[in-house]
Simulated scan of single mutants.
Amino acid sequence: MNVIKHLSREELDACLPHIQDSPQDRGLLEAIVIRPSTDERRQLLACELSPEGGVHGDRWAHESWMTLPDGRPHPDVQVSIMSARTIGLIANQEERWQLSGDNLFVDLDLSDSNVPSGQRLGVGTAVLEVSAVPHGPCGKFVERYGKAAAQFVNSRTGKQLHLRGVYAKIVKAGTIRVGDVVTKLA
């Protein structure tokens, strides 16, 4: 049985400078994950994105946790994006990244001061817009990564740096691939 060691809050806090050293304007898409159904994850090398379908293959289009008044999935939570540096630290093993439930893992500064709500990001041929919906840890996050990780991402600094990640909507359909550049757009 493979025992996973969760880092302490002190160990996590000591790694903040590494996370804060993420690229500001041009980063890298390091992983793509879809969630076809609850607790199912598939890591992809490439994927289509569209305003109508979200991250194609992901359950957002038919089972979003946030909906519009008419019952359609809310576009502001189409794509969940997390810092590859943060998840790398918390998950401890790359094969455990997908357990976070996020779609895209990027090496880019996701802090509120760098990618505030409304900031557009180019990824592959798609364009995303960061939404104002906060992304916080759920009970499953605590089970999978430990209480210290949840406290770390939910701390005052963690919230400012968006350590748990951000939500985005798709404003231009396109194809994305692991290794694509992620660019802040004007």
Results as ranks from 00 to 15, higher is better:
residue 54 G to Q: 00
residue 158 G to L: 07
residue 86 T to M: 10
residue 131 S to A: 06
residue 55 V to W: 04
residue 51 P to T: 00
residue 110 L to R: 06
residue 44 L to A: 02
residue 157 T to E: 15
residue 113 S to H: 10
residue 167 Y to G: 01
residue 10 E to D: 14
residue 177 R to E: 10
residue 104 L to H: 00
residue 14 A to H: 15
residue 182 V to D: 00
residue 178 V to E: 04
residue 34 I to F: 07
residue 137 P to D: 04
residue 175 T to D: 04
residue 77 V to R: 07
residue 114 N to I: 12
residue 137 P to T: 12
residue 161 L to F: 01
residue 157 T to M: 15
residue 73 P to L: 06
residue 22 S to A: 10
residue 157 T to R: 13
residue 16 L to P: 14
residue 27 G to Q: 00
residue 78 Q to L: 05
residue 39 D to V: 05
residue 39 D to N: 09
residue 19 I to Y: 13
residue 121 L to D: 03
residue 18 H to T: 14
residue 47 C to F: 12
residue 40 E to I: 11
residue 4 I to N: 12
residue 46 A to S: 15
residue 3 V to I: 07
residue 149 A to S: 13
residue 98 Q to L: 09
residue 49 L to R: 06
residue 91 A to Y: 03
residue 41 R to H: 14
residue 14 A to M: 08
residue 178 V to P: 02
residue 138 C to T: 02
residue 155 S to Y: 13
residue 87 I to R: 08
residue 139 G to K: 00
residue 174 G to M: 01
residue 63 E to W: 07
residue 52 E to C: 12
residue 24 Q to M: 12
residue 171 V to M: 02
residue 123 V to H: 05
residue 119 Q to C: 06
residue 185 L to N: 02
residue 20 Q to F: 13
residue 6 H to P: 14
residue 123 V to I: 08
residue 8 S to L: 00
residue 108 L to A: 01
residue 8 S to V: 10
residue 1 M to P: 14
residue 164 R to W: 13
residue 101 G to N: 11
residue 177 R to Y: 04
residue 26 R to D: 14
residue 138 C to W: 05
residue 133 V to S: 04
residue 36 P to H: 00
residue 24 Q to P: 06
residue 97 W to L: 03
residue 152 F to M: 12
residue 41 R to W: 07
residue 134 P to F: 05
residue 100 S to F: 08
residue 159 K to M: 15
residue 100 S to M: 08
residue 71 G to N: 04
residue 93 Q to D: 10
residue 114 N to Q: 11
residue 15 C to Q: 15
residue 136 G to H: 10
residue 145 Y to I: 05
residue 181 V to R: 14
residue 108 L to M: 03
residue 102 D to I: 01
residue 48 E to L: 09
residue 82 M to Q: 12
residue 10 E to P: 04
residue 82 M to R: 12
residue 164 R to I: 08
residue 139 G to S: 12
residue 108 L to V: 03
residue 122 G to Y: 02
residue 141 F to P: 03
residue 168 A to T: 08
residue 80 S to K: 09
residue 185 L to T: 02
residue 117 S to W: 13
residue 126 A to V: 08
residue 3 V to K: 14
residue 65 W to Q: 06
